[in-house]
Structure formats: structure tokens, C-alpha cells
Amino acid sequence: MRFRADLFNFSPMRPFQILLLAYLLLAAGCVQYHYSPNFVQTPYGVKKGSGQVNASVGGSPVALNGDFHASYSPIKHGTVMLNYFRTRSSFEDTNFFTGPTYTHTSKGYLLEAAAGGYMPIAFGTGAMYVGWGQGKMRNDYGIERIADLRLQRFFVQPTFTFKNDWFRLGMGLRLVRLNFPSGSIDYRIEPADIEIIQRLERESPFWFPEFGGNIGVHFKPFTISASLVIVGTKPAFLYGFDGSNIGLGISYELE
């Protein structure tokens, strides 16, 4: 009897498969995190006086997130925006023999403001934003062992948007400088988790890109959209960075 050769003919994994596998692996484990990305916001305003407000919910294998965004063009070719982001997660620390013992939680926020300019490019609009914000992440490792880290984020963000009467498409590359300027950390936290925090302290600030986009259907004046952002940075298990955020939102547009 001969084995079929193709049974053993594994093809190399494609990037999508790797991503999916990583996502599933992350989903299988509960981790605490010190950074989670908000959506890369891409204002659709193309003239003075236009603007939008947006609310989205999203998540990743480890976190549940909420995004609030407002943008306005006070001048021709100029936009300001304000983003507020909240993230949280919790899981039970389960002991195989004794069952659940205590709850771990991660929660935090980021408030940031940005300004930028836009101009028509090809069939859409190109824009460049510069922004800065700060926030806080609180990780409770159970039995009142808490790590509070303050974070500051500076970003430069080129975007491209396309819109017509019923469709919205936005893409952006957010170049991030993430800094952890201060923290208050209970030293009872497990050494492995302390190590991650010390790594953040030692190596901060971090520079990394985030890739994001959204696609939506417009029902004047509302838009229902789906958004995705992926953090292109160091391994989550070493730095406690949540690697993605995917979700749905609704926008109201001012014309």
C-alpha cells in the first residue's frame, strides 16, 4: 500500500493563514495588556464646514473596545479631530484543581487630538494628520495587585479616503510614537508580568506603524461602517500590546 503523496505535501502558510492562526491562538489564551489600538480615523470632510461624529464598538481576541470620534473642517483643506477610546477585558484565573480563583481585568482610555490638511488625490482625498494624546491603562492581576500605566501617544497619519453618495472607504497608516511616562505598579504582580512592565519602562518610547481602514455604507446623513486596525509591532507576549481591533460603527456626517 502506498500513501498518497499529497497527504504529506504541505504548502507554506500564507500570510492570511498565519494571521488567522495567531488570532485564534490569542483568542485561546487570556492575557493582560498595556496598550490597545483605537481605529485609524479617516475624516471624510472635503470642504470647510464639513465634519462627522462616529461611535464604534470593536474588539480583539483579548479586549472589548469603544471608539468615539469627532472631526471638523474649520478651514478649507484643514481638519481637526478628537478621538476618545476605551478598552477593557477581564477573565477568571482558573486553577485546574480549585476552579476560578480571582478575576483579572485590563481597562484603559486614550484621549487625543489631531490636526491635518487634506486635498483631492486621484479619485479620492488624501490627508495628513498629526496628533497627540494621552491615557491610562489599569491592569488588575487579582487580589488587588494593580499596575497603573500612563501612556502618551504621538502620531503622524497619512490617509486616503474615497466616498460617493452611498459608499465610504478610508485607509490610513498611523505612525505611532508610544511612550509610557509613568506608572504605579504593585510588586506582588507575578514576576513574568513585572518583567513585561519593566520592559515597557526600559524600552519606551516605541515607534511602530498601525495599519487601519474602514468601509461603510452611507444613508444620508448616517454611515454604517466596519473598521479594522492592526498593530505592526513587537510580540504581544513580550510587551503586552494588543495587536488588533476590529468592529462596527455608526457615523453622522455634517455637510
Binding site: P181, G183, S184, I185
Partner: peptide
């Protein structure tokens, strides 16, 4: 952002 970080472990 370049200011020295201030992590307080207790």
C-alpha cells in the same frame, strides 16, 4: 516624550 519615565513599584 523624551522625559525620563517615572515608574513607581510598590
Amino acid at each position: 516624550g523624551a522625559c525620563k519615565s517615572d515608574f513607581n513599584y510598590y
